[in-house]
Amino acid sequence: MARMKFICDAERCIECNGCVTACKNEHEVPWGVNRRRVVTMNDGVPGERSISVACMHCSDAPCMAVCPVDCFYKTDEGVVLHDKDLCIGCGYCFYACPFGAPQFPQAGAFGLRGKMDKCTYCSGGPEENNSAEEFRKYGRNRLAEGKLPACAEMCSTKALLAGDAEVITKIYKTRVVTRGKGEEIWGWSMAYGGSGKLADQPGGRA
């Protein structure tokens, strides 16, 4: 079974924001709501590195753990999704999330929080696949079309990788081995924990 993951190769990310607009393009999320962002460390000085971050679709997701109405679920592929019909917009998940992934569109004149919105790994939500209703609430469902998230597919330098952990680990590993470094910056273990050795990661032995 596929386990869907993102990994951003910091040796390649050039902070071009292609992933950000690819996401806007595919899901037409409103101004001010950003499912994906690029974060830069040591901006403007040697050691500058950028990574693209969105919902990491955690194995043990803190958002799921704290949600008072239990609107989160996880698909067979390990994608963390939620039901907007159930969401009450309380913002608990935002405080729980280590990555700041949950977003809250402004609702009404008093700046009340709307229902939570976040990266769906381009796989929609609990509505009929590729239906108008699904798009309206969650955006496109590329996974159901046999495609991967738009952000990674369009990444300018192929820094942001998406897909089955086994497949993308192999791609990432090839690069790390070829250049002889890079893992320590924002490698698999930084993203998902566990052993720091690529060989210990899914697909890493192959």
Binding site: A65, D70, Y73, T75, H82, N141, L143, A144
Partner: peptide
């Protein structure tokens, strides 16, 4: 935790 929302179809169901 148990999920209280609507059932979602499999990605390959469409």
């Amino acid at each position: 935790r148990s999920y209280m929302g609507k059932e979602d179809a499999k990605a390959y169901a469409g």
